[in-house]
Simulated scan of single mutants.
Amino acid sequence: MISIDTKRLHLRNVLQNDVDVIFDYRNNEICARYQRGQVKDYEGIVSLIERRRNDEISIDFPCMIAVALKDTNEMIGEIVVMPKDHTFSLGYTFSYKYHRQGYAFEALTVLTEHLHKMAPEWEFISFTECENIASIELLKKLGYKNLGYVPSLDSQAFGKWTTMDTEEEFAHLSK
């Protein structure tokens, strides 16, 4: 079971009653324009929640985390954690209704700290589209380093606690 609290937020497992919120922001152009491969149809989201509702934060398996307002438990966004080869890849989407209020920074800060305590030697990588200035600025504020553009992924890569080998690998990929 996932349960991490901040001053304003509760990070928890996704619930079936989150389906309408997820459907709303995943199908809103403000949120959807920078997302790739996300399930957007209602039935698909219901199925996704069913598959992910018992996820645990682990170094062995991916998980989906709902970010909810602490006072109301209303879901306002999601974070996906994908562990592989001593690296956590993080992806996130927050509802357009809650942009520019510090919620993504707050949630990602506490989650990154939690994951770093679990696996202090692991690296953190996130990818974003070059036009997604808000996400780029968020990653910089979180202490991520710009690792360069990766043409094969059509994405800008950012890393935290990365090794020199990883940074050199991304430098090579960005050429």
Rank of each mutant, 00 (worst) to 15 (best):
M1H: 08
M1T: 12
S3A: 10
K7F: 03
H10N: 12
Q16A: 11
D18P: 02
D20K: 13
F23Q: 03
F23M: 04
F23R: 05
N27T: 10
N28P: 00
E29G: 00
E29S: 14
I30E: 13
A32C: 04
Y34T: 11
G44N: 06
S47E: 14
R52K: 13
N54V: 07
D55W: 10
D55L: 06
S58N: 08
F61C: 07
I65A: 03
V67R: 04
K70M: 02
K70D: 00
D71H: 11
M75Q: 12
M75W: 01
G77I: 09
I79H: 03
K84M: 12
F88G: 01
L90T: 08
L90V: 07
G91S: 13
T93Y: 00
F94E: 07
G102I: 09
Y103W: 03
Y103C: 10
A104S: 13
F105G: 03
E106Y: 10
T109E: 04
V110E: 05
T112P: 00
H114T: 01
L115D: 04
M118F: 01
A119N: 07
P120N: 07
P120M: 09
E121V: 02
E121H: 14
I125R: 01
F127G: 10
F127T: 09
C130I: 14
C130E: 14
N132H: 15
A134L: 07
I136L: 08
L138N: 03
L138W: 03
K140R: 15
L142K: 10
G148V: 09
G148D: 08
S152G: 00
L153D: 07
D154S: 12
S155R: 15
S155Q: 14
A157H: 05
E169A: 13
H172R: 15
L173N: 01
S174H: 01
